[in-house]
């Protein structure tokens, strides 16, 4: 076990040479406390681009679904308000889609905090403890430097919800030209999601579910920042989270144990 060393010295922690795993860099700031470089630069950029696109997509999307303001017009169809709103929605949708693809790539090639494997027993037992923690029940939730399993599950679900919104969105985008190459890429969705009305419904409902996710996500981050004093909020800008050295070693032991099991298997 590598021990955290002096201030400002970056040391890889734990075993190396595992599947494309970048071991976390961390700095000891004061006795007993370390700063861990959790969120790498690309994922931080992605986070804020994604947040901004969701906001823009939501506002323009609600307008498209239910135009709440009228164009200022002489009464002739010379304005282009809905047209512009749709164009902004479409361009942002492409950014959101590229972000989704990037984040999927980052699941495989980011550092170890970029995902938690959902098909492990430890993930689900940790989830149970985390749920108890959030329900103020006695629990054995360890301190997670990155995502706790419940948070991770919500991000997996967020990814699936985003995918549904992206797919149905592209159907709606290409709907006027179903006989073109692009149209043929999306017209199969008739058979999965149902007719045009149903596809629109899926798009709309999942957009709202994403908004609910965002609200809970923001609350949880603020709460974590205040309760755990882990610098959750600022970490999405600087990349660093604060953790107790003891917690870190504990987590590392956990992972190491698991790795050993994996190696044997």
């Amino acid at each position: 076990m590598a021990e955290p060393t002096g201030i400002g010295v970056q040391t890889p922690l734990g075993e190396t040479g595992k599947i494309r795993r970048r071991d976390p860099i961390y700095q000891a700031v004061e006795p007993g406390t370390v700063k861990v470089y959790v969120w790498e630069f690309p994922v931080r950029v992605w986070h804020w681009v994604n947040a901004l696109s969701i906001f823009v997509l939501f506002v323009t999307g609600v307008y498209i679904g239910n135009p709440f303001v009228h164009a200022a017009s002489s009464g002739e169809a010379d304005a282009f308000l809905m047209g512009w709103v749709r164009i902004v929605h479409f361009i942002t949708a492409f950014i959101f889609t590229l972000g989704w693809v990037f984040r999927l790539y980052w699941v495989f090639f980011g550092n170890r905090y970029t995902r938690e494997h959902p098909f492990r027993r430890r993930f689900w037992s940790g989830m149970w403890e985390t749920v108890k923690y959030y329900l103020f029940l006695p629990n054995r939730k360890p301190h997670y430097v990155g995502h706790n399993p419940l948070a991770m599950l919500s991000y997996w679900l967020f990814g699936v919800m985003s995918l549904i919104v992206i797919l149905t969105g592209f159907f709606l985008f290409f709907e006027p030209q179903l006989d073109t190459v692009f149209g043929r890429l999306v017209s199969w969705m008739f058979l999965v999601f149902g007719d045009s009305f149903s596809i629109r419904s899926w798009h709309h409902i999942f957009a709202w579910l994403i908004i609910l996710f965002v609200i809970v996500h923001v609350y949880m981050s603020v709460r974590d920042d205040l309760v755990e004093r882990s610098g959750t909020i600022s970490s999405m800008i600087t990349g660093y989270k604060t953790a107790k050295r003891a917690h870190l070693i504990e987590a590392e032991e956990d992972t190491a144990g698991e790795r050993k099991t994996l190696d044997v298997g």
Binding site: P67, A71, S73, G75, A77, F80, E175, P176
Partner: peptide, 24 residues
Amino acid sequence: PKAYYRHRLHDKCQRRPFFDAGLY
């Protein structure tokens, strides 16, 4: 039949300019 059901009314609608303009 594609000849009659390939497009939405929305895409051939005579009121479509008002939709794009934002006048409802």
